[in-house]
Design a protein around this nucleic acid. Structure first.
Lengths: 219, 219
DNA sequence: ACAAGTATGTTGTAAAAACAACATGTGCGA
DNA sequence: TCGCACATGTTGTTTTTACAACATACTTGT
């Protein structure tokens, strides 16, 4: 376990917990580590998940298979990333997704019941751990809600305005940079890149906004 | 506070906690109750929220105001419902939304720090409370993720198939009922009702599925 | 059984998006 | 500086959607 402390420490789940404490906690949480070969299934659709996965090395693809067997990659989890936390924290809800090792990977599993149930004995940092878990879930929640707000809009134009308006509000200025290039923005908003480019040009022509590369200004 | 126990007990946050314990806990959590007139702001965009709101009576609209001042209602919270939990659990993230009393309302506020920080003294049920909070966040997370999967699809047809395929999988059968009427389904999938009706008819003609009212069968 | 209201399906039209193919621009390394 | 790779913008065509208006169930209350 010692070898993995570096990666574990970087995880948001263990934020604010110092290295010494960390090692003790991992024992207390009865963390287990397993290795997976590229292509191995870590979680199978239908599994009842009770553990959070933490990627120590390698990477994981979260994928879904629909009724007709078509697979889609929903997200990619890289080093120090978490996966399965929602299902592990939602008792009685079998995971509807597969987690597959995208490369040879080392994964640490933490039983959520161990995290939630405070050991009344030691673990000064246990409260912090619970707090971190809650924070992780809450932030994810916020991100998802925001995305839904944007892609709920009917037209590309409205999706853009929804996204850009929100970005302006978070930085508190009508002038800001976005963390996406055009293709990434189009993917995020679930629209066609060229159609989006069109909509952007149109908005500029109408004097609603200005932009240059990743820099935008609302007018 | 006693008068409100009925509504409070129904909240998912207090699931599995018996009535006697409940009253003691509310004191320990220093729950506060406030009344709002219809139209009053409960949370204002930009506020740093540290409390979860629990609707004891009345109802709350969660609304957003964009850069140009256009308001949209994002969700409605009714009796025994929670709101603000994501922002209360995400430290340092000011709420980007307004919570407005939709009617004259009575709201109980619970400081999340009090919930998260286990009182080492009493409160046998405190662990359960924390667990409930985590469960609430996790389930919401799952719901949001599922919705994003569906509305990420480019065409109405694909959105329908994504949704229906998932429903079939959760019940484990190709034959199932959905909890929406057509208009509600269209709203959920963020598409036009009549266009959706068309797509459904087309899918039936192609022999992909059958339906009758809210009953569907995938083929 | 009837009427009124609601839900669902259908059709035609105008607007918008997806798609493809290409033009221009920008940055980077040889 | 040149050329290459990649990002962005542009254009035209096809497909899809939104919208509106209407037809046909189906429900509910009287």
């Amino acid at each position: 376990m010692k070898n993995y402390l570096m990666q574990i420490k970087k995880s948001r789940l263990f934020a604010g917990i110092d290295a010494q404490e960390l090692e003790a906690m991992l024992g207390c949480l009865s963390a287990t580590v397993r290795h997976f070969k590229k292509g191995d299934y870590i979680i199978r659709s239908g599994d009842s998940v009770s553990s959070v996965g933490l990627v120590i090395s390698g990477g994981v693809h979260i994928q879904r298979e629909d009724f007709w067997g078509n697979r889609t990659i929903l997200s990619e989890v890289s080093e120090s990333g978490l996966f399965g936390e929602s299902y592990a924290c939602a008792p009685g809800k079998p995971a509807p997704i597969n987690a597959v090792a995208a490369q040879n990977s080392t994964i640490m599993f933490l039983d959520v019941r161990r995290i939630i149930t405070t050991c009344p004995s030691a673990c000064a940092f246990h409260a912090r751990l619970i707090q971190n878990l809650i924070t992780v879930l809450a932030f994810k929640n916020i991100m998802l809600t925001e995305k839904i707000e944007h892609i709920s809009q009917r037209s590309t134009r409205e999706k853009l305005l929804s996204y850009l308006s929100e970005q302006a509000q978070v930085v508190g200025s009508s002038s800001f940079d976005i963390p996406f290039n055009r293709q990434q923005l189009a993917d995020y908003l679930c629209v066609d890149r060229s159609a989006m480019s069109n909509a952007l040009g149109q908005l500029r022509d109408e004097g609603v906004l200005n932009f240059n590369k990743a820099h935008f200004e609302l007018l």
